[in-house]
Simulated assay, not measured.
Amino acid sequence: MQKKSSPVQIFLSHSAADVELVNAFENFLARALNITSESIFCSSLEGQGVKKGANFVDAIKAKAIEAKAVVALLSPAYMESPFCLAELGAAWALNTHRFPIVVPPNSFEVMQATLLGVVGVKLDDQEALTQLLEDIAEALELPAATAGVRVRAMRDFFKAWPALKEGIGKAKRVDAAIHKKALTDLAASREALDATEEDLEKAKAHIKALEDIKDPKQVAAVSKAFEDSDWEMELDKALGEINEITPEVGPKVLRLMILELLGKQSYPDLGDDYMDRAIEIDVYDPDSRSWNHSSDEMKALKKGMKQVEDVFEENENIVSGLKSQGRRYKTSDIRFWEEQLGIY
C-alpha cells in the first residue's frame, strides 16, 4: 500500500536562481517550526517540488491551493522573473496567510507595489524573523519547537548568511519607486548643501568682523564655538559599538548586562526564552547564577560603556546639551542607557 504523503503546510515561493539560499532557508524553516520538509512545497528542491511528468503550472496551482500559508523570498531575481511574480499573485489570491520576506540587497521600497499592504520582514533582521516564525506557527496552529532547537536553527542560518548573501544577484533594473526616492533624496541633499554653504559664509564673515575689531574675548569665544567637537556624533558612535551586541544577546539581556556593570542588581528569568542565548554562548552561568565578565560580549559592552564615559569627560557641553533636549544625562542611571539604546 502506497504511503500517503503529508499535507502541504507551507508553499515556499522563490526564484530558482536563489537555490542555495532556498535550500538553507527551507532547512531553517523546517527546524524552527518543528515540521518536516514534506510539509513544505518548494519547486527547486528534489522531492519537494513538482513530480516528474506532471504539468508544472497545474502542479504549482494545486499546491498553492493546498498550502495553508505562503512564504515568499523576494530577492532581486524573484522580482525580475515574470513567472515568480505570476506565481506570487496566484498564491496571494488563493491564500489568507501570507508571509513576504525581503531578501537583501532588496529593500522595502522595492516591495511597495508587490506587498499590497501586507507587512513583510527583512531576511537579515533576526528579531523580525523570530517574530515571523511565531506568526507562522500561530497561523498554522503548529506545536512550538523547543527553545534550544529554535535558537540553534537561527544560529546556523545566520552563520551561513554572509556566504549566502554573496551568492544573491543584484537587480538588473532599478525600480521606479527607488529611482524617484533617489531623486528626492538628491534634491534634499542639494538644498541642505546650499544652506550649509550659506551658513558657512555667514560664519566666516562674522569671524572676520570680530578679528577686525580686535576684541580678544569675543574672538576667543567664537573660535571656541567653532573648534568644539560634535558630542552628539561622538556619543552616537560610542553607543553604536554597544548596539552591535544587541543582535547577539537581545535587548532584555543587554539591559541586564548593563545593570551588572553598573554594580546594580539584575534578575534574569531563567524560565524565559530570552535567556537561552545568553546561557548558550556563556554570557550567563545558570549554575552559579552569575554573569561571565570574561565573555566576548561582556568585554565588548564594558569597552563600549567606557567609550561613552570618555565622551562625557572630553565634552563639557554634553550634559547641558542633553538637559536642554529633555534627555537623561547620568551614565550611572539605567534609564540613561534605556533611553539611548532603546532597551526597556
Rank of each mutant, 00 (worst) to 15 (best):
E201C: 00
A209Q: 14
K224V: 06
L73C: 00
K302E: 06
K217C: 01
L33R: 02
V121I: 01
L45R: 02
I258H: 04
L140V: 04
I10C: 12
N34I: 12
A278F: 08
K208L: 15
A17M: 12
S294I: 14
Q265S: 10
L140C: 08
E109G: 02
E227K: 15
T114Y: 01
L132T: 04
N55E: 13
A205D: 08
I101S: 01
K51I: 14
V22P: 06
E141K: 13
L140T: 01
A72E: 03
T246D: 11
E26G: 06
S320C: 13
M275C: 07
G263I: 04
L74Y: 05
P143C: 02
E166N: 12
W337N: 04
A147M: 14
S39N: 01
D285M: 10
A72K: 00
I65N: 14
V151T: 10
V71W: 12
E241C: 07
H293Q: 08
L129P: 11
L29F: 05
K264S: 01
S43R: 11
K180T: 15
L341W: 00
A30M: 03
F41Y: 09
G89V: 09
F108R: 05
C42G: 02
K217D: 09
E339L: 04
F83S: 10
S81Y: 02
E314Y: 14
E20Y: 04
E87V: 02
F83C: 04
K299R: 00
F336H: 07
E316F: 11
T36W: 02
N292Y: 00
W291E: 06
F11K: 02
D236N: 03
A195M: 05
E248G: 08
E198W: 14
Y267N: 10
W161H: 00
E313R: 15
E297A: 00
M298I: 01
S39A: 09
T96H: 11
C84H: 08
L210C: 14
Y344D: 11
D310V: 06
L29K: 05
Y78W: 11
G148V: 15
P76E: 00
K252V: 13
L239N: 11
Q9T: 05
G167A: 14
D296R: 08
H293E: 13
V119A: 07
E20T: 03
K306R: 14
A72Q: 03
N315I: 05
Q112L: 08
R150P: 06
